[in-house]
Design a protein around this nucleic acid. Structure first.
Lengths: 114, 114
DNA sequence: TTGATACTTATCCATGCGGCTAACTATAGT
DNA sequence: ACTATAGTTAGCCGCATGGATAAGTATCAA
């Protein structure tokens, strides 16, 4: 019964956690093995791996195993996709008075507040 | 026993839901009463109000009641705060080869892959 | 003043999330 | 071969989330 999840849902959900954001911030500097990524956190490894899993299934990072070491790398494209959403909103916000009707309605709203 | 929540946690969490993102996209065009915002969704009003509550406590929107009508307005500042995080990551990503050590380590990583 | 409108409050429910431990697997080093 | 390392798998737990319904409140319109 899985409901369809939009890409932005999983991306934003992945970023709504300080540990996961910090991992992204670390990977932005370059690839790193799981062990190194996990080191700063007072958390059991399986718990940490779940975070990696969330980031990976959101497409924000990729990982591959070499011997016993799994190395994670950032996928900046997904980061860009999320950023794009904000840009779009900003664009709409900037043009919210583009047509005169909107402007007039807004002005009326302001003067109605007596 | 609430754990301290960082602002970005609540902002990203608020945006990790298609209904809430759509509300933001609507409010970017200008303020609107709850009833109008809720109209497109096949959802009970109390459920919808929870989404409004999430957006509001994340600081993404504000609302005030006039008579029986509660009007919501966007707070573009919080949107900008989230966007800023992406810009920071992008900046780090762009400068990841700024010092020579990083570059060399990376090149070595590439050639090791035989 | 009666009724409709626009929320609001209270309560419930299933699922998902973030953490844990314990036990297992596979590789590297000695 | 043995041991340490680096993940992995499996299962458990408590709380938050996203939905629902039912009933209450306050305001506006006739």
């Amino acid at each position: 019964m899985d409901k369809y999840q939009e890409p932005l849902d999983t991306i934003f959900h992945a970023l709504a956690d300080p540990t996961r954001r910090a991992v992204v911030q670390r990977l932005v500097e370059g690839p790193a093995p799981v062990k190194e990524l996990a080191a700063p956190y007072d958390m059991a490894l399986p718990s940490f791996m779940k975070h990696i899993g969330v980031l990976e299934s959101a497409g924000l990072i990729a990982s591959q195993k070499q011997g016993r070491v799994r190395t994670c790398t950032l996928n900046p494209g997904k980061l860009a996709a999320a950023e794009k959403w904000f840009e779009e909103q900003r664009a709409s916000w900037a043009s919210r008075f583009d047509n005169l009707d909107n402007l007039l309605t807004s002005l009326q709203g302001e003067t109605d507040e007596t």
